[in-house]
């Protein structure tokens, strides 16, 4: 019987399989991974929203037309639309009706009945070719050639603001991500220190039996890397679940939605277990090597 058992024997791990601190540590690391994954999803969604908004803004321009003394505003707008329609890089130019122009200024002037007495400028909406859009100077030259006085708004002030806001969000998310990573590393380092002290007798026996510091450090490294990989998977699944709920409730990709998450975005959480294991392995290894040198 004992011979059979000996033949079937497989080496057990030098460190005890489970520790009563493992549950708490798994929860903390899983929570940090969950937050890190949410950060990644936020960056993706923000970038997509910004790109959508920027594309829409950069593919349009608005011309404010000022009629000449002997010209009606509607005629001036029609002439401007005609002048711009043939410019390379312009897909379509159309003069907006007076009602639409009035609707645009209504939020600032309120619902007043005698708007027709005000000299509301006429607008021309220009759709630009995304591949090679006409520049503001090209549009200005076309208007000038036809003797039309107009102000060109290419929305660049808005796109710059949006791009700047997106950059800020990306940097903030990146900073929070690094902070979470550092916190995870610190938690693992703390746990490694506690684990080493709790297993001091094991460490001493291995050391006195001829184990190298690296050999012992690797035991803790593998242990915490495995634990963190599991915690990372739990955090990733949690974040993917939240992302899926947002996708189902908010839809994806449309400008009207604040967080346009696509199903494919959920894949961004996939490397989380690997990254968590890597961070834990580095933190545990560095801590264990330093501590083993101190206590032995």
């Amino acid at each position: 019987m004992s011979d059979l058992l000996a033949r079937r024997w497989r080496p057990a791990t030098f460190l005890p399989e489970a520790d009563n601190r493992d549950g708490s540590l798994t929860f903390v690391v899983a929570t940090l991974c969950f937050l890190a994954c949410l950060m990644a999803l936020t960056v993706l969604a923000t970038n997509r929203a910004v790109n959508t908004w920027s594309d829409q803004l950069t593919s349009q321009a608005t011309i404010i037309v000022r009629p000449r003394a002997n010209e009606t505003p509607d005629l001036a707008a029609a002439r401007a639309a005609e002048a711009l329609a043939g410019v390379p890089g312009v897909i379509e130019a159309r003069a907006l009706e007076r009602e639409k122009a009035e609707a645009l200024v209504e939020p600032w002037l309120g619902d007043i009945t005698d708007l027709e007495d005000l000299p509301i400028p006429r607008l021309v909406a220009v759709d630009l070719d995304n591949a090679s859009p006409a520049t503001p100077s090209t549009l200005a030259a076309a208007l000038k050639a036809r003797g039309i006085d107009g102000i060109i708004d290419d929305h660049s002030i808005w796109t710059r603001d949006i791009a700047r806001s997106a950059d800020v969000i990306a940097w903030v998310c990146g900073g929070v991500f690094l902070l979470i990573t550092a916190a995870a590393g610190a938690v693992i380092a703390f746990a490694t220190r506690a684990g080493l002290l709790a297993r001091r007798e094991v460490v001493e026996v291995l050391h006195l039996t001829g184990a190298e510091n690296l050999f012992i450090a690797r035991l803790f490294q593998v242990r915490f890397a495995q634990l963190s990989a599991i915690a990372g998977a739990l955090g990733a699944v949690g974040a993917a679940g939240v992302g899926a709920v947002l996708r189902l409730t908010a839809g994806g990709g449309e400008l009207t939605h604040a967080i346009p998450i696509l199903w494919s975005d959920l894949l961004v959480v996939a490397p989380c277990p690997l990254v968590a294991a890597l961070v834990a392995a580095i933190a545990a290894r560095m801590t264990a090597e330093r501590m083993i040198s101190e206590i032995t």
Binding site: A6, W9, P11, A12
Partner: peptide, 12 residues
């Protein structure tokens, strides 16, 4: 090592 079997201890 209390968490290892006698066999594992002997093989350390």
């Amino acid at each position: 090592l209390d968490h290892l079997s006698a066999f594992d201890n002997a093989a350390v």
